[in-house]
Amino acid sequence: MTIYSFYIFDRHAECIYNRRWAAPPVPKSARPMSGSSMTSNGDHPAVRKGLSREDDAKLIFGLVFSLRNMVQKLGGDDDTFLSYRTAEYKLHYYETPTRMKFVMLTDTKQNNLRVALHQIWANLYVEYVVKNPLSPVEHPGGIGVANELFERGLDAFVTAVLPS
C-alpha cells in the first residue's frame, strides 16, 4: 500500500495542511517514444510538472466539492461521497460535521479509508490542534495545524495503521 498525499481543508475552502509522501521511484523503462507524437491533446503526463503544491490543493478542493455536490444531487441529501478510483490512484474523502474535509490519495488497492480519516480527525487533529491552547480557533494559512505532535502522530499513524 502506498500513500501519496494527504490534505485538510477548512470550512472556508482553504487548504490548512498538506503532506506528501515520497512516490516510489519511477521505473527507468519509460514510455515508448511512439507515444510522443500523440501528445497534441494536451492531457499527457508532462502537464503535471507545471503545477505547484498550492495549485494541486486548489484543484483537489474544487474537485471533491463538486463531486460531493453531484453525489448529493443524485443520491439525495443524506448521501455522502466516499471515494473515487482511477486506474492510477484512489482518492478517499471524509467530511466532519463542521465541514472540514480530509482527503487522502493512495494507490488503487487500498480499501476505503473513511474510518482511518475519521481516526486522524478524532485522535490527532482534535487532540493536538483543537485542544492546543496556543493554536487559534481558525487556521488561516495553516497556522497552528502543522505542529510537531500532530506531524509525528500522523507519521506514526500512517506507518502503524496503513503499513506499506
Binding site: 514510455r31 515508448p32 511512439s34 507515444g35 500523440m38 492531457d43 499527457h44 503526463p45 463531486l67 453525489v71 443524485l74 443520491g75 439525495g76 443524506d78 448521501d79 455522502t80 461521497f81 466516499l82 471515494s83 473515487y84 478510483r85 482511477t86 486506474a87 492510477e88 476505503n112
Partner: peptide
C-alpha cells in the same frame, strides 16, 4: 497497441453511501 496507453485514465469508479 493503443496510442492511449501511458496516459492517466481519469475517474473510473465513484463510491458514495447510496450508489
Amino acid at each position: 497497441p493503443s496510442p492511449f496507453i501511458g496516459r492517466p485514465s481519469g475517474l473510473e469508479v465513484l463510491e458514495s453511501s447510496h450508489f
